[in-house]
Structure formats: structure tokens, C-alpha cells
Design a protein around this nucleic acid. Structure first.
Length: 557
RNA sequence: GAGCGCGUAGCUCAGGUGGUAGAGCAACGCACUUUUAAUGCGUGGGUCCUGGGUUCGAGUCCCAGCGCGCUCACCA
């Protein structure tokens, strides 16, 4: 537990102080304190009260808090109490608290919890302060607090010891208060619109509803492997089949994939389903929902993310293909047209206008690995690529090779192009709609374009926050889509869907036309709090456990 | 998974070109009855992330590993 002999000695020293406090007649770990006010209530009520008002109508208070600063000054002294993120100064003087009270004051350390009674006044410099009559010891900080001015700055320590981070850094606390406000606002919206909040299994025999690698676990009594869910989607739609026309769930999903500033292995998603709605209805709903939540949380629809001001009430919409065309940088080559997206042949010949055919083909002839890093290396591009064009070229090359090899469809190629060309430009709220069928195994096809589906994602701050579609409700088509996914699974795509017979059976009882959407709560909170890393909006982000040297030695023995 | 950066006292940080480790806060002692990053005087505190190597000598240079961050890949 101790980081050092220094900490050990501080701990021991404070045990001595506890003994002395006990000798003064104070219980060292009392079980309550009868406060008359919270510090927040005092600040709210008396922050504007003048010195004269406080003298004329003496306000007696009993308050408690953690000592965040202590300044002894001979036969008097100050301390700053913090409670629920709110601070208030107290003033302790020997002639007011008496000798035993002042003895206790001298035994206090930064971080201790105390309660005091007294009355409010303003100091010479005007600070609202409790003039203490009695001190009650509540709990001791046995370990030293971080530096009082800079706080706890080391990001690793902040994540690993969030309990310290939270009481040292007020802005951290604020983020999690806002996160709670996001959840509250979301629940309010959906409750008011007649949605039922439900909870579906986190442990699933088949991890479906998204393309991702699941965590595996095991149930001993049943002796079966189970997966932590990657999405609640398939269960929620079963509920709509069951007649719960409007349902939502806010809970964790688990994906056994990389960790980054935008990905934590467990993350919170709001997912909702609305019978008789389609993706157009959900686009409209989304454009109402996000600014509403922003108003509830921040009191404004404006937010600053990565130094850019974002207005969450101003939305733009593009189809995926429009977005590629719109955000295409002509310095990289001729802008594509809708016709270029028609089929594999047209997309290939357009890519040949960007990258010479002999280069595109050379690598296939050499039979090299076509995973992006290898493509990049083959093209003489260092990793990571030094600029956007090099990265784009690598992606186009990659798409081209896989199309030549019949490994992907034109739709998958277009989806990859979209990510490479457009995603980083989607800072202001943007809906991207009409996705390729090939990357959307659970979405309903567009009636006039069967290779495309009624699906959209919305982006803010350069990353995806939500994903929605008109749900595929034809069980025969759904079965075929699953079979197709199984094929991709066999070709090595570990994230392709597994067959879920029971889900197909549920659809066979009739799912009404339904729109469904998932919204990443962590990412929305990032945008609303200006947090650049998802770890800053998750209380305990996953960290590799620290192995102490002693433990490491013990394990190797 | 790859590239780059960082790792020095409990905390925040200094430590040109290699020469026995420093400051502030925190801690301990003393003084101080309206301070607020209180002040003044004094004291203690370090496996310089770990393990190798080069060298007469490594916090500093080299190699390997560990942890964290950022970027990329994957993904929401």
C-alpha cells in the first residue's frame, strides 16, 4: 500500500496524532455529524451577504468537510473545508474554541474531515468564513495529499487513483456531474415520449448486434461459455416484437478491441427502438435530442471541442456518397462522381485515375500482404503516413487490391473511402445517411436502391457518436444476411455476425416497421465537456494493472 | 499491433557537452490571534521505472524490458 518509507512514516506519525486526538477526548472515527447546512447551501444563501448583515443577524451553522488548506498562525488559524466540491473557509482561534479545541486544531492535517459549529462572518479581506466555536474530529487522512497548487497532474495517477483526482481537481468532478446530467436528460426525453426503459442481458450466448470482437466468460454451473454483449440490439428488437413498441436501454457494451482516446473496452450506449418509425424520423429526433441534452447539461447548445466551437443545434446532412464527393480534396486527384460509385468496375477505373495502374497492380503481382501497413510500406510510405494524401492513397490502394481479389464489394470500398476522405471533416454536427448494404447486415434496404440501406450515423467533433437505421424486419432476408456474414466469418473476418436463429424466429412472429438508434454516451459527454480523451469521462478507465517490484519478484520465484 | 514522446523526493518540476542528486509544496521542530499558493528560521526525506552494457566514473550514452501519453491501425 505504501509508495515509500516516506509514506509509511507519515502514516505512522498520523496514527500517533490519532492517539493524541483520542487522549483529548475525541472519538477518532465517529459515525455521524449533525450538520445544519451543506457548504453549498451556505454559499448559495450567504455569498452576497455583507459583513454588516452577518454581524447584525448572526447566522449559526454546523458544517463538515475535508480540510483542503490549513494555515496556522500562532494562537489562531484558518482552514478551508471542501464538501461536495464546494469550499468554505473556517477561522479557529484559541480564545473562541478553548485550549482543548485548539489542541485538536493543531493535530489536524490536510485531507482530514472535520465538523465545526460557529457563526458566519467576513474576514478583513472579505472572505465568507465560519468563526468556529467547537471542532469535531471526523476522519483522518493517513497519507499526504498531492501538491496543493498544481493538484494531481500525472494522468496515469489521476486514472489509477481517481479518488484523489476527484477531490483535488474540481474540473474532474464537474465532468462527472455533467455526465450524470446527460443520462438524466436522456431518460427524461425518452420517458416523456413514451419509451420504456429496459435491461437486457449483458451475458449472451451469441454476441450480436454489431461488428466487434467480444469478451468471453464462462458459467460454471451450466458449463457454457458466454459472451459479454457487444450491443443490446437484437434483444431490444425482440422486445418490440413482444409489443413493447418503444424501448430504450442505457448500459455498458464490451468490445475486446484496441484502446484509444475514443475507445474504452467497456463503454456506455443508449440504444432505443421506436415502432412505426423509420430512419428519417430518427434523423429528426436526433437533431432535437442532442441540442436538448446540451441545454439541460450546459445551458447552451454551443460547446468547444479541440479548440473549435461547435453548435449542437446546427446540423447538416449528406449521403455517404455525397460526403465523399463534398469533402474530396482535388489536390489528391479528380473528384469522384456518383457514377464512379456505381459498381466495382467504375470505382476501379476511378481509382486508376488517382494512382497509376502499374503501381496498383505491381503489388498484387508481388503477392504482398495487403493489410494497410504493408501496403504503405510497399508504397514507400512510412507509418504513420506523413500526410493525408499518402494515407488516402494507401486506403485507395488497399480498396483496389481487395476489389481485384473479390474480397470486398463496391459498398465496402465506398465505406472505407468515406472514413478516409470525410470523417475528419465532420466537426460540426453532421448526419451521414444511406450506407452500403454490405456493411449493414441488420438494416432495411432502400426500396429504389437495393444495394444501399436506410441507415445513418451522426458525427460531432470528428468522430461517430451514433448509428441508426430502419430495422430489417423480413426474417427470410435477415437469415440470408446472417448466412452472408457467416461466409465473411469463414473468410477470416472475426467481427462478422454469427447466425442468431432465435432472433430470426422472433422476426418471424412479425416485427413492425421500426427505427432503432444507438448513441455513445461517453463520446457525447466528451463533446459536451470538451474532454479530448474518453478516459476523462470514464471514472475508472481500464488500465494495465501495476505490478510492484516485490510482487514481480515473488511471482518469478 | 506499429511509430513517436515521457518516467528524478508523497506531489509539481529543474538537472548544457558523463564527474558523489536540487527547488517549491507536503512532512517534522520553533515563532506568529483576520490568513488565503500566509510568512520567517531550522530539520529530515531519493532502488533517478527495471535489468544489462560502454566507461576510471552513468540521472545523463547504448541495448532490452515495464508503465503511461499521443498518433496510426481496428472500432462506436
Amino acid at each position: 500500500m505504501y509508495e515509500s518509507e516516506f509514506e509509511q512514516s507519515v502514516f505512522d506519525l498520523r496514527r500517533e496524532k490519532l492517539k493524541q486526538i483520542e487522549a483529548l477526548g475525541h472519538p477518532v472515527y465517529p459515525n455521524s455529524f449533525a450538520a445544519t447546512h451543506t457548504l453549498a447551501a451556505i454559499r448559495a444563501e450567504y455569498d452576497t451577504a455583507t459583513s454588516e448583515t452577518l454581524e447584525q443577524n448572526r447566522v449559526s451553522v454546523a458544517v463538515a468537510g475535508r480540510i483542503m488548506a490549513i494555515r496556522a498562525q500562532g494562537k489562531a488559524g484558518f482552514a478551508v473545508l471542501q464538501q461536495n466540491g464546494v469550499r468554505l473557509q473556517i477561522y479557529v482561534r484559541l480564545d473562541a474554541v478553548g485550549e482543548p479545541g485548539f489542541q485538536l486544531y493543531k493535530l489536524l492535517d490536510m485531507g482530514d474531515h472535520i465538523g465545526v459549529t460557529g457563526y458566519l462572518f467576513r474576514t478583513r479581506s472579505g472572505e465568507l468564513t465560519v468563526h468556529v466555536d467547537t471542532l469535531t474530529f471526523l476522519s483522518k487522512a493517513m497519507l499526504p495529499l498531492p501538491e496543493k497548487y498544481h493538484g494531481l497532474a500525472d494522468v496515469e495517477l489521476r486514472y489509477r487513483q481517481r479518488y484523489v483526482d476527484l477531490f483535488m481537481n474540481a474540473d474532474v468532478r464537474e465532468v462527472f456531474v455533467k455526465r450524470a446530467a446527460v443520462l438524466r436528460a436522456m431518460r427524461k426525453v425518452f420517458d416523456e415520449r413514451g419509451f420504456l426503459e429496459v435491461e437486457t442481458p449483458m451475458m449472451q450466448p451469441i454476441a450480436g448486434g454489431a461488428a466487434a470482437k467480444p469478451f468471453t466468460t464462462h458459467h460454471n454451473a451450466l458449463d457454457i461459455d458466454l459472451f459479454l454483449r457487444i450491443a443490446p440490439e437484437l434483444y431490444l428488437k425482440r422486445l418490440v416484437v413482444g409489443g413493447l413498441d418503444r424501448v430504450y436501454e442505457i448500459n455498458r457494451n464490451f468490445r475486446n478491441e484496441g484502446i484509444s482516446t475514443q475507445h474504452n473496452p467497456e463503454f456506455t450506449m443508449l440504444e432505443f427502438y421506436q415502432a412505426y418509425a423509420n430512419y428519417h424520423d430518427l434523423m429528426d429526433l436526433t437533431e432535437e435530442l442532442i441540442p436538448y441534452v446540451a441545454m439541460e447539461v450546459n445551458g447552451t447548445t454551443k460547446t468547444v471541442f479541440n479548440d473549435v466551437e461547435i453548435d449542437l443545434s446546427q446540423w447538416q446532412r449528406f449521403t455517404m456518397r455525397e460526403a465523399i464527393i463534398h469533402f474530396w480534396d482535388e489536390e489528391a486527384g479528380p473528384r469522384p462522381t456518383m457514377e464512379d460509385f456505381l459498381d466495382i468496375g467504375s470505382l476501379k477505373s476511378w481509382i486508376e485515375k488517382i494512382i497509376p495502374r502499374e503501381i496498383l497492380l505491381r503489388d498484387t503481382l508481388q503477392g504482398i500482404d495487403v493489410r494497410p501497413p504493408f501496403v504503405q510500406r510497399a508504397l514507400g510510405i512510412s507509418t504513420p503516413p506523413p500526410n493525408l494524401h499518402a494515407r488516402l492513397n494507401a486506403v485507395l490502394h488497399f480498396i483496389y487490391l481487395r476489389m481485384v481479389r473479390d474480397e470486398i464489394t463496391v459498398g465496402q470500398g465506398i465505406a472505407s473511402m468515406f472514413e478516409a476522405v470525410a470523417e475528419e471533416h465532420l466537426i460540426q454536427p453532421t448526419i451521414i445517411y444511406d450506407f452500403p448494404l454490405a456493411v449493414s447486415p441488420l438494416s432495411k434496404q432502400k426500396p429504389d436502391e437495393p444495394d444501399w440501406v436506410e441507415r445513418f450515423e451522426f458525427y460531432i467533433g470528428g468522430f461517430e457518436l451514433g448509428n441508426a437505421f430502419s430495422e430489417l424486419n423480413d426474417p427470410v432476408e435477415q437469415r440470408n444476411r446472417f448466412l452472408q456474414q457467416l461466409g465473411e466469418r469463414e473468410r477470416g473476418d472475426a467481427e462478422a455476425h454469427a447466425m442468431d436463429e432465435d432472433y430470426v424466429r422472433a422476426l418471424s412472429f412479425g416485427l413492425p416497421p421500426t427505427g432503432g438508434e444507438g448513441i455513445g454516451i461517453d463520446r457525447l459527454t466528451m463533446v459536451l465537456t470538451g474532454s479530448r480523451s474518453i478516459r476523462d469521462v470514464i471514472l475508472f478507465p481500464l488500465m494495465r494493472p501495476q505490478v510492484k517490484q516485490a510482487d514481480a519478484d515473488a511471482m518469478s520465484e
